[in-house]
Amino acid sequence: MANQSTSSPEDEQHSQADNQHDDPQQNENDREDRPERKRPGKKPLIILAVVAIVMIIVGLWFWLTTRNIETTDDAFTEANAVTIAPKASGYVTELRVKDNQRVKKGDLLVVIDPRDSLAQRDQAQAQLGLARAQLHQAQASLELAKVQYPAQKDQALAQQAKAEANLLNAEADYKRQRGVDPRATSQRNIDAASAQLRSARAELAGAKAQVEVASQVQLQIQQQKTNVEARQRQVEQAQAQLNTANLNLSYTQVLAPYDGFVTKRNVQVGTLVQAGTALFSLVSPDVWITANFKETQLEHMNPGDKVEITVDAWPDMKLEGHVDSIQMGSGSRFSAFPAENATGNYVKIVQRVPVKIVIDKGLDPNQALPLGLSVEPKVRIK
């Protein structure tokens, strides 16, 4: 219908508000009719108190269990690793190992062509045989000289005695020829006696000289002894050359210096190698941990402290060990380019010091940890 009016919700709200302001008594009655709000009980407070106590206990327990523990994530596995290189040159004729193979000390790893070394050894053996033969000859000459030279002296003395007798006879003949009546002899006989006298004197002088030479028996024997000593030195020299040849021959066989694993192999059969050429690396199975702790963590850390070790590669592996030693210097001090703190502007940086940790338990003897693995040690300090 045209005269009927419509009212909006806003008009009704305004009208109700006006009615409430106009009737205070009714407002009071409405408040009395409303139910009262219940106050919160003690149960939430109790729960809150229990949670707070539990948190305090947990925090206290965590502090008590970790206050004597120093840890770092800057720690890695380490072991002895050497580069295997030959001392002989030649072609590789045998390769006895594969990549990452475990070997024992003394195992044959590589064989280099030994023919050149064998020829040198045979030549040295021949030189040694010749030197020994010459030594035996010199020793025989010495034994002969000990008999020969005294006999020669005696023979020289006998020749001297004979020459003296001949001289006496010649002198006697000469005196007879000069003392008789010239008519009873001839000038020829006198000249012959005179010549015989001079010859006897010459023979005596020669015999005396022979005696003087033959009398040097000790010097002659000493000369033979010196010859024997020289031959002995030659034998020793030849033996040394043979030892060197055998040593060079042994270098053609590369042996494992200790138990370990073959890594980084870069040699094949037929490869021409030179002395000092790197063939591969040999890693020892005896692994330790190098942990780089901050210098502020070392105050109470001492060798012998127990360590719990976790390996990132095998989270379930739990190792136990102890602190072996603390390096006498920070890592930066022994780096290739140590910091020059006395030059330019200085900014203090907390240094890290390597700590060696030896593994005591938890590692399978047949299992070795590769080098450079990340680990997390927890050191219990006293």
Rank of each mutant, 00 (worst) to 15 (best):
M1D: 05
N3W: 08
S5K: 12
S7W: 10
S8V: 06
E12D: 15
E12Q: 14
Q13T: 13
A17N: 10
A17P: 00
Q20Y: 07
Q25W: 05
Q26F: 10
P35E: 04
E36Q: 00
R39Y: 00
R39E: 04
L45A: 11
V51G: 03
V51D: 01
I53R: 03
V54K: 07
V58I: 09
F62H: 09
I69E: 07
E70T: 05
T71R: 06
A75P: 08
T77G: 02
E78Y: 14
E78H: 14
I84Q: 08
P86E: 11
K87C: 00
A88G: 01
G90A: 08
G90E: 08
E94F: 10
R96V: 05
R102G: 03
V103N: 05
G106Y: 06
G106T: 07
L109D: 12
V111L: 12
P114Y: 09
R121M: 12
A124M: 09
Q125A: 15
Q125P: 03
L130V: 15
L135A: 03
H136T: 14
A138Q: 09
Q139S: 14
S141K: 09
S141T: 05
L142F: 11
L142E: 15
V147P: 00
V147Y: 08
Y149V: 06
K153P: 00
L157I: 11
Q159M: 13
K162E: 14
L167S: 11
E171K: 15
Y174K: 15
K175R: 15
K175P: 04
V180N: 07
D181Q: 11
R183K: 10
T185S: 14
R188S: 15
A195P: 12
S199F: 05
S199W: 02
S199D: 12
A202W: 10
E203M: 09
A207C: 04
A209H: 04
A209K: 04
V211K: 05
S215M: 02
S215V: 03
Q216I: 01
Q218N: 06
L219G: 09
Q220K: 11
Q220G: 01
Q222G: 00
Q223N: 11
V228D: 03
Q232I: 04
V235G: 05
V235N: 05
T244Y: 08
N248K: 03
L249T: 08
V254W: 07
D259S: 13
T263S: 06
K264Y: 09
K264F: 11
V269K: 12
Q274E: 06
T277W: 00
L279G: 10
S281K: 10
S284P: 02
W288K: 06
A291K: 05
E295H: 11
Q297K: 08
L298E: 13
M301E: 12
D305Q: 07
V311K: 01
D312F: 07
A313M: 07
W314R: 01
M317H: 00
K318F: 01
E320W: 03
D324K: 14
I326A: 10
Q327Y: 15
G329I: 15
A339K: 14
T343G: 10
G344W: 11
G344H: 10
N345P: 00
Y346N: 07
Q351Y: 13
P354M: 09
K356G: 08
K356C: 06
I359E: 02
I359G: 02
D360S: 06
N366Q: 08
A368L: 01
L371W: 00
V379L: 01
R380S: 05
R380A: 02
